Computed example of a mutant assay.
Amino acid sequence: MSHYEPPSTVERMGNAVIRRLAEAGISIAGTRALTVRGRKSGKDRSVVVNLLTVDGADYLVAPRGNTEWVRNVRAAGQVQLGPRWHRRTARAVELPDDAKPELLRRYLQKWHWQVKGYVAGLTPDSTDDELRSAAPSFPVFSLR
């Protein structure tokens, strides 16, 4: 799981603006503010994520791969989602690779326009074999 696509300076600046909006309760195309305890510092770290909901269950997908927030979620085992004044805590359980292909497809159906530059050429029309092959590079967490 060493795949990681770091954001450009422009993307980091855009993400900071969108994160602040999400923290204020304003969602753009399904964005949510994610807060997780830092594995090294112990301080809360916030990022903006796209929350995928399938059949009433919530999932976090990391299209950039093994990011800092992914490593923090693995260490903490739980996250907080939502605006500053109404965060909900959820346990985050990382899914095995064989459970990811359909969730990756659903994620791409919703946000391919946003993540197409760093998902290794995957599209909503990628085959099951292509999604299975790519699954180890894209962490997915179930929120409970």
Rank of each mutant, 00 (worst) to 15 (best):
M1L: 11
M1Q: 06
M1C: 03
S2K: 11
Y4E: 14
P7M: 02
V10A: 14
M13T: 11
M13A: 15
M13Q: 12
G14A: 09
N15Y: 07
N15R: 02
A16V: 09
V17G: 13
A22L: 05
A22W: 00
T31P: 13
T31N: 05
T31M: 08
R37Y: 00
G38F: 01
G38S: 03
K40A: 12
S41A: 06
G42Q: 09
V49F: 04
L51A: 11
L51W: 11
D55L: 13
L60G: 02
V61I: 10
A62S: 15
T67N: 10
W69A: 13
V70D: 08
N72S: 05
R74E: 01
A75N: 10
G77T: 11
G77C: 08
Q78D: 03
R84Q: 07
R84Y: 00
R88C: 09
T89N: 10
A90H: 15
L95P: 15
D97E: 15
D97C: 12
D98N: 12
D98V: 10
L104I: 02
L104P: 05
R106L: 07
R106K: 14
Y107A: 13
Y107P: 03
Q109M: 15
H112D: 08
W113K: 12
V115T: 10
V115G: 02
K116A: 12
A120F: 07
S126T: 14
L131H: 10
L131K: 13
V140G: 09
F141A: 06
